[in-house]
Amino acid sequence: MTQLHFEDVAEGDEVTPLTVTPDATQLFFFSAATYNGHRIHYDRTWAVDVEGYPDVLVHGPLQSALLARAVTDWIGGHGRLVSFSAQNRAVAHPGQELTFGGRVTGVRLADGRGLVDLELAGRRGEDVLMPGSATVELPLRGEA
């Protein structure tokens, strides 16, 4: 992977999208890795009969981690995540294909640092399940 530099990006550029179809195994490992016992992520009877969902739910924090992964993959090893935000707007279920990505909304130099603002979204088809935003720092050419 070649390193992305501040000078390479302009408003409107796309964050390389990441497409993932979470399955029950991934949900299990994410619950385990985050010490999350919430039954809506693994107990289908609870999710359907008690909480009224059609199936178990993909964790909101897993979706936000996937959204952040799309960003950290795109900015490369010399890039830095400065801030990140995401909102859960709608639920997702295992077996559904989800796409995480975004677009550059602004570039600015601040105290010699190359900062890039991003508008992000986790989507299922055309539906935005998780809108978000981030600011990243990219190296200047000649720095790294």
Binding site: R39, I40, V50
Partner: peptide
């Protein structure tokens, strides 16, 4: 529902038991 309230102050909402993450 299997969730733990330990790191959030054990806030209880008996009239609103269905919890989900909002945002970060």
């Amino acid at each position: 529902d299997g969730s733990s309230g330990a790191s959030s102050g054990n806030l209880a909402f008996p009239a609103a038991p269905k919890r989900m993450a909002g945002g970060e």
